[in-house]
Structures are given as C-alpha cells and as structure tokens.
Design a protein around this nucleic acid. Structure first.
Length: 334
DNA sequence: CTCAGCCA
DNA sequence: TGGCTGAGG
C-alpha cells in the first residue's frame, strides 16, 4: 500500500520534487530495483513474457497455489493451527522457488543481485543513500521514508504500459513541504503499512501538526477529543524501522556487472524451463545491446551531471557522489 | 476535512 | 491506484 496520499501531497506542495522521464534518460545509471513487486508482476503478467513463462511451467503451480490459498483461508476460519502452518509454509515455498529462479536468471544475465534481510525497499534505499547506486526503484513510496534520496516509480514497466517513469527527490519533497528530515513521522501520520493512523487526522492535518510540533510525541500530547490514537500505535517502533531498518551495510556489498552467460541462460530457460529458444536468444541480444548503450550512456551522463549547477548542499552531495562514480565507470568504458 | 464506499 | 461522492464532524 505504501504511504497513503503522499503523491497528492507532493504534487500539491512540492511539484518540483517530481519529474517524469523516459527510460532513455537513465542510460548508464546504476539503480537498485525492488524486485519483490516486479517478480509478482512478471508472474501474473498478461503480456508475452508472462504468458510464456506461465504456460511453460508455472500454470500448474499457480493453480496449486490458488488451491493452497483457499485451504489456508478455510483453516484460518476454523482456527486449525496445524493446517494454517502447513499451508502457509507451502505458500512461502512456492514464492521462494520463484525467487530462486529469478535470482538465478539475473545472475546468469550478469546482473548483481542483493538479498535484503527484511524490507527490499529499505535495502534499495540504503544502497541509494550510500551512493552505491544513484536511485532506488520501487512502486512503494515507503522507500522515501527509508531515506532514499531519489525514488523511481514504474521503471520496470513504463515501456510496456506506455507510462512515463516518475522520479522523486526526497530533499525537494522535504523542502517543498517545509519539513526537515521528517519523512518518517510524516509517513506514519499519513498512513503506512506498519501501523494505523490517528482518527480524524488526514493529509492536511497531518502536515500542519508536523509543522507545528515536529514529532509524533508532541503531536499526541496536543490532540483534540475527536483525534484518537489507535490501539497498538507503535509509532516509535515504526519510526525506528524507517530510520534504522535492518539492512546489509552497503559497504559490504560489491555491485559487479558481468557478461551474460549465453549458453547457461539458454540451458536454464529453454532446456530446463521450455522457453522458446529464438525468443531467449533475442532477449540476450537485446541485453548485450543494452550493455553497450549503457556504457555509452555513462559518458553522456558524466558530462550532463558535471555541467549541472549545484543548487544546494544536499544536491551537491549527491552530485559529488555521482561524479565520482561516473568517473570510475567512464574510465572503465574507455 | 475525514472517511468509507464505489467505480473506472 | 486514484478520483469522485455523500455523509458526518
């Protein structure tokens, strides 16, 4: 679900914080993609890719999965703990197989895969914060609460759905809202996945309360009778989750792109999973072409970034990181 | 203004 | 997901 109504708040109060772009604009950029969503979209997709994958192998599996879901629901209604456990485990196992397949394919394609200890969005945000990547890509606006300086939405499906990619800048959002490093408190008040909201506090009041009191502790002390704090309002815990999520230290993560292993991909996708060989070969070709293009793009973005005027401290900090990274990369490209 | 419900 | 509406404060 993400953060409720945050997009409207951004367009209303901080329109400069949101840009739209085509995929071309991101050539040569390193981006951490929150794959939990794209994997699901891929599996249920109605486009060519999804259908083939589905037909080839997963159709039975997803039928079984649907049946398991039904059984789980029944078990939950009856309160049968043993069965609940059994079916839950079965459901998890299926998604784990999907995940493993996905990771295997990505690795064969030479794309680095990072496993998040908890929330994928938090891991992506940490990578972006550290400068290991330029941005985090996720559908979930939570990613901003986890402190991602730049968030890209629709990155993986903008072409298929013919929708522009949305680019959000955290510093510009906070500036537009006249809030300082308060994304976690705001996210909680607007409504996130991790706790309920305060009754009768919608986007407008949330914003004005935060501006007035700065943190939820003070806000709670100053509520009206109609504004009721929900039961189990563990906002401190949620705020900790946003500010200090359980992630792998990006310093320990080496993002290395490798050449795609054509033969291994064909073996895995065609021989083991019944995909059409021509299509897979075409895909690999496309991938190799993309690698070349992005190496070209690295140079382009290097010049573009360098000539961009530094507007403020935060921005400059980002650009410095970027410059450094792109330099390293462009040396490689040469 | 918020909120729940409905619709595209 | 997002927009709109109608009830209620």
């Amino acid at each position: 679900m993400g953060i409720h109504g945050i997009t409207k708040i951004i367009t209303d109060h901080a329109p400069q914080a949101q840009k739209t772009n085509e995929i071309k604009a991101y050539l040569g950029r390193k981006v951490a993609i929150d794959a939990s969503m794209s994997l699901y979209q891929f599996l249920v997709a109605d486009d060519k890719n999804g259908r083939e994958w589905d037909k080839a192998r997963l159709a039975k599996r997803s039928d079984r999965r649907a049946a398991t879901k039904e059984s789980l629901k029944e078990a939950e209604e009856k309160g049968n703990q043993e069965e609940i456990q059994k079916f839950t485990r079965r459901l998890v196992k299926v998604t784990k197989e999907h995940n493993d397949d996905c990771k295997k394919l990505l690795r064969l394609m030479g794309i680095p895969v990072v496993e998040a200890p908890c929330e994928a969005e938090a891991m992506c945000a940490a990578l972006a914060k550290s400068g290991k990547v330029w941005a985090a890509a996720s559908e979930d606006m939570d990613t901003l609460c986890f402190g991602a300086p730049i968030l890209l939405r629709r990155l993986t499906f903008s072409e298929a759905k013919k929708l522009p990619i949305l680019e959000f800048h955290l510093d510009a959002i906070l500036k537009g809202l006249e809030l300082d490093k308060n994304q976690a408190n705001l996210g909680i008040l607007l409504g996130c996945d991790y706790c309920d909201t305060i009754k009768s506090v919608g986007p407008k009041t949330a914003l004005s309360l935060i501006k007035k009191h700065h943190n939820i502790e003070e806000i709670i002390k100053n509520l009206t009778e109609k504004q009721i704090v929900p039961e189990d309002f563990d906002y401190q815990q949620v705020r900790q989750l946003f500010l200090n999520p359980d992630v792998t230290d990006p310093k320990e993560i080496d993002l290395v792109w490798k050449k795609p292993q054509t033969e291994e991909i064909v073996k895995f996708m065609c021989e083991q999973n019944g995909f059409n060989k021509d299509r897979i070969l075409k895909g690999i070709e496309k991938l190799e072409k993309g690698i070349k293009q992005s190496q070209q793009g690295r140079l382009d973005s290097f010049f573009k970034v360098s000539s961009e005027p530094n507007k403020n401290k935060n921005k400059r900090k980002n650009d410095e990181k970027l410059d450094k990274k792109t330099k390293v990369k462009s040396t490689k490209a040469k």
